[in-house]
C-alpha cells in the first residue's frame, strides 16, 4: 500500500469544513468562481503553517470553539457552525460579533485570515481593478530606459567599487 505523508500542519477535515463555512460568511457572497474556496483554503493552510506555533494553536482553537459555540445559539439549535446553512451561519456570526470585546477581537482576527487570502487571489484583485504586475513591468522598464546609467553607478557605489565610496 502506498502511504502519502500528510504535510506538517495540514488542516484536518473538520477544520477545513469550519474554515470553509466561515469563509462563506465573512468573504463576499458572490465570488468570481466557485473554485476560489479551494485556493483560499490551500493558501490559509500554508499561511497557518508559517505562523508561530502559539498563534496557529490560538487560531485553530478559535475556529473549533466557534464551530462548537454555534450549537448554543438560537440559530444553531444544537448544530455546529459548519453544519448551518449560509443564512443561519450569517445570523450566528452576527450574534457572536455582538458579544464581548475579546470575542469581537478574535472574530476580526479570524476573519482577517480568510479575507486576506480571498482578496489576494488574482481573479479577485482583477475584479477590483488592481493588477499590479503589469504596472510594475511598465514602470520598471521606464526606469531602466530613463535612468540606466545612474542606476549602474549607484549600484557600484553600494558595493564600494565606485567613485566616492571611501569612508
Amino acid at each position: 500500500m502506498i502511504s502519502v505523508r500528510k504535510p506538517d500542519h495540514a488542516l484536518s477535515r473538520r477544520q477545513r469544513r469550519t474554515l470553509r463555512a466561515f469563509a462563506g460568511v465573512v468573504c463576499p457572497p458572490d465570488p468570481p468562481l466557485d473554485t476560489v474556496w479551494t485556493d483560499v483554503l490551500a493558501d490559509v493552510e500554508r499561511f497557518l503553517a508559517a505562523t508561530a506555533p502559539g498563534t496557529r494553536a490560538l487560531l485553530l482553537m478559535s475556529f473549533t470553539v466557534l464551530d462548537e459555540r454555534a450549537r448554543l445559539t438560537p440559530e444553531g439549535r444544537g448544530r455546529r457552525f459548519a453544519d448551518l446553512d449560509r443564512f443561519r451561519a450569517e445570523a450566528c456570526y452576527r450574534r457572536l460579533a455582538r458579544g464581548s470585546r475579546r470575542t469581537r477581537t478574535l472574530l476580526i482576527l479570524m476573519k482577517g485570515v480568510l479575507t486576506l487570502h480571498y482578496y489576494a487571489l488574482p481573479q479577485v484583485e482583477e475584479a477590483l481593478g488592481y493588477h499590479p504586475a503589469a504596472y510594475v513591468r511598465a514602470t520598471a522598464s521606464r526606469r531602466t530606459e530613463r535612468y540606466g546609467e545612474q542606476i549602474r553607478l549607484g549600484e557600484r557605489l553600494a558595493l564600494g567599487d565606485g567613485p566616492g565610496t571611501g569612508p
Binding site: V25, V26, C27, P28, P29, D30, E90, Y93, A97, R104, I108, K111, G112, T115, L116, H117, Y118, Y119, A120, V124, E125, L128, G129, Y130, P132
Partner: peptide
C-alpha cells in the same frame, strides 16, 4: 494592497464587498 486593507476592518460578507468595490 486590497488583501491587507481588509485586515482589522469590522465589515464582512456583502458589506465588505461593497466597501472593497471602492478600493
Amino acid at each position: 494592497p486590497p488583501a491587507l486593507v481588509t485586515l482589522g476592518l469590522p465589515h464582512h460578507g456583502a458589506e465588505l464587498a461593497e466597501l472593497m468595490a471602492d478600493y
